[in-house]
Design a binder for these strands. Structure first.
Lengths: 119, 119
DNA sequence: CGATATCATAAGCGTCCGCTTATATCAATC
DNA sequence: GATTGATATAAGCGGACGCTTATGATATCG
C-alpha cells in the first residue's frame, strides 16, 4: 500500500488540465454553445454558424473529442457531433476534489512536518 | 433596445475563456490545490511546495489574479494569496448558461431563418 | 465507375505561453 | 539609511497553439 506512483490527485490534475485547456478557447466555446443549442449537429453546420473554415473546425473538434467533451459518429457522409454533458460532471467532481483541499497536491516531499505551517 | 454591441452570451464567452485558460495549466492547478489545502498562504510557501522558481510562481499568480481566481494582499513584506471560491461559482453559472443552450452563441447572422435547420 | 459532397490530415506560419536568469521594487530591522 | 528578506518585473528562448491553404480519405449518387 505504498503510495501509488501516480496519485489520485495527480490523475485529477492531468484530467483537469486537459479539460480546462480544451475549454479555454473562444471558438471551441462557441462550438459547445451551438451543440448545446442545436443538439447533435454535423460538422458543416458548425463551420457555417461559427464562420470559420472547415479544416479548422475539424481540428477544434479533434481537441474536444480527445478531451472527451464530445462524441462523434459517422452518419452517411456526415459526421454528427454531440456534446457529452457527462464530461462536465466529471469536471465538476475533479474540480471539487481539488478545491476542497483534500487532494494532497504537492511536489516537495520533504515539506511534510517541517516549517510548512505558515500564515 | 437594439441588440447590445456585446451580447450577454459574448461576455460569458470571454469570461469563460479567461477562467478556463487560467485553469488549464498543471502548475496553476497545483497552486490552487495548495491554497485550498492551506488557506491563505504567502508566495514563498507556494514556491517551496510547488518546487518552482519564485519569479515563475509570481507570474502564474498574476494570471490567476487577472482571472479573479485569487486575491492577494500585502502583509508586511509578504504577499498573502487566497483562493476566491466565488470565482468557481461564477464559472459554474456562466458554464450553465452556455451548456443549457440559451446563450445565443453565433457568428453568422445571415443564418437566421435560412437553411440552418439540420439533423 | 466517375463525379460530387463531407470530413480529416499535412505542411507551414506568426503568436502566445511556460520557463529561466537577472534586476528592480517594497518593507522590516539594525 | 544601509542591509536583508520577500515579491514583482524585464529580457530572452524553445515549443505549443490557433489559423490558412492544399491535399487525401470516405461515402453517396448518377
Amino acid at each position: 500500500m505504498t503510495i501509488p506512483r501516480t496519485t489520485a490527485g495527480e490523475r485529477d490534475l492531468r484530467r483537469l488540465r486537459t479539460l480546462y485547456r480544451a475549454l479555454g478557447d473562444e471558438t471551441r466555446l462557441r462550438m459547445i454553445g451551438l451543440m448545446a443549442e442545436l443538439g447533435p449537429v454535423p460538422v458543416k453546420t458548425l463551420s457555417a454558424r461559427v464562420g470559420l473554415s472547415q479544416p479548422l473546425i475539424s481540428w477544434h473538434l479533434r481537441i474536444l473529442r480527445l478531451a472527451a467533451l464530445i462524441d462523434t459518429k459517422r452518419q452517411g457522409r456526415e459526421v454528427i457531433c454531440k456534446l457529452r454533458l457527462a464530461a462536465f460532471e466529471e469536471l465538476h467532481e475533479a474540480e471539487a476534489r481539488l478545491v476542497s483541499g483534500t487532494a494532497g497536491i504537492d511536489l516537495a516531499p520533504s515539506s511534510a512536518g517541517s516549517e510548512a505551517t505558515n500564515v
